[in-house]
């Protein structure tokens, strides 16, 4: 995944079953952001792998003042990259079991 300067990780162990997971996002390299960034620290949130899309999370973070509108794409891409990796790992575990 491209280094967007925004880090997204699992905030807790993924049990591979629950559709809702806990993620944690923070800015590792604020020079990669286009807008002025207020250092908010690590932002933990839940994400439903089946019903939600990263773009809506990123937009809510902008609406909450964590990021500027100009950076909504970079934030949603960072979340998307991590979510894709989690889904890939889950599928790999399932296919491994099969």
């Amino acid at each position: 995944a491209e280094d967007t300067g925004v880090r997204v990780e699992l905030a807790e162990e993924d049990d591979g079953k629950k559709s809702s997971i806990a993620l944690r996002l923070w800015v590792e390299d604020q020079k990669k952001l286009k807008g002025k960034y207020k250092d908010s620290g690590a932002i933990e949130f839940s994400f439903d792998l089946e019903t939600e899309v990263p773009e809506s999370i990123a937009q809510e973070m902008v609406d909450s003042g964590f990021f500027l509108e100009i950076d909504v794409k970079i934030v949603s891409k960072s979340i998307r990259d991590r979510v894709s990796l989690i889904k890939w790992r889950r599928q790999r575990i399932v296919s491994g079991c099969n």
């Binding site: 590792e28 604020q30 933990e44 809510e60």
Partner: peptide, 27 residues
């Protein structure tokens, strides 16, 4: 302060806490 802060937006909860120094790149 270093305590976690909770922000609500559109029914979603964001929990904000300090990032450990070790996890920050050359900021």
């Amino acid at each position: 302060s270093s305590a976690a802060q909770v922000v609500h937006s559109a029914g979603r909860r964001f929990i904000v806490s300090p990032v450990p120094e070790s996890r920050l790149k050359d900021q």
